[in-house]
């Protein structure tokens, strides 16, 4: 039981995909311009991660090593396409805002990374919790980044105007702003954890 908890929480904290593993930066940079986009991308990626991890863990014994990568890719791509179609049908605005980055979840390193590093070795329950933890960690990181960017770059939070009489800092809306925010957050987290370790 304790081990399962660990599998879940490591994705949020010690092995956070963005801040610790530095994986999946492409969507993190591109769609984190608003909290809604960040949340949408986070949930979409979590769903794909969960689906692919469960299926891969289920069939891990039947898939020979030599052809595991093509099998993983097909499974992941299937889930991504399901997400894309569902989004187009039920959340067209979000689908328009996320644009190309939904289909690009296929090549998100986190998904294939977890399949390769975890799901193809562990049982279903552990893989499921691993996927949930990674997905929640990814979503949490995206929320943090997009909240900072939306607030500074647009003066809003979830679309509501928060900072009045404020000239939005466009820098944070553009790609360099995303790099800066992620860099400073990673730096800050490393600083805090190194301090805790030495204390």
């Amino acid at each position: 039981m304790k081990k399962l908890f660990k599998e879940f929480f490591k994705g949020i904290g010690s092995e956070n995909p963005i801040f610790r593993l530095v994986l999946g930066l492409c969507p993190a940079l591109a769609v984190s311009t608003s909290v809604v986009n960040g949340l949408g991308m986070g949930i979409a990626a979590t769903f794909v991660l969960l689906g692919s991890n469960i299926i891969i863990s289920l069939i891990r014994k039947f898939i020979p090593d030599q052809i595991r990568i093509p099998c993983f890719i097909v499974i992941i791509a299937t889930f991504v396409t399901i997400v894309e179609l569902a989004m187009k049908a039920y959340a067209p605005e979000l689908s328009k805002a996320l644009g190309i980055f939904v289909p690009l979840i296929v090549v998100n390193c986190i998904v294939l990374g977890r399949a390769e590093a975890f799901a193809c070795k562990e049982d279903v329950l552990a893989s499921m919790l691993d996927a949930l933890g990674m997905g929640v960690g990814f979503t949490f990181a995206l929320l943090l980044i997009s909240a900072i960017r939306e607030l500074l770059g647009n003066g809003t939070f979830l679309g509501f105007l928060i900072l009045k009489n404020f000239d939005p800092i466009l820098y944070f809306m553009l790609a360099p702003g995303a790099l800066l925010v992620i860099g400073l957050l990673i730096g800050g987290i490393n600083f805090l954890s190194s301090k805790r370790r030495s204390a």
Partner: peptide
């Protein structure tokens, strides 16, 4: 450069 990107109008 930061100012130029952030507040091009000013």
């Amino acid at each position: 450069a930061f100012l130029q990107i952030s507040w091009p109008v000013y």
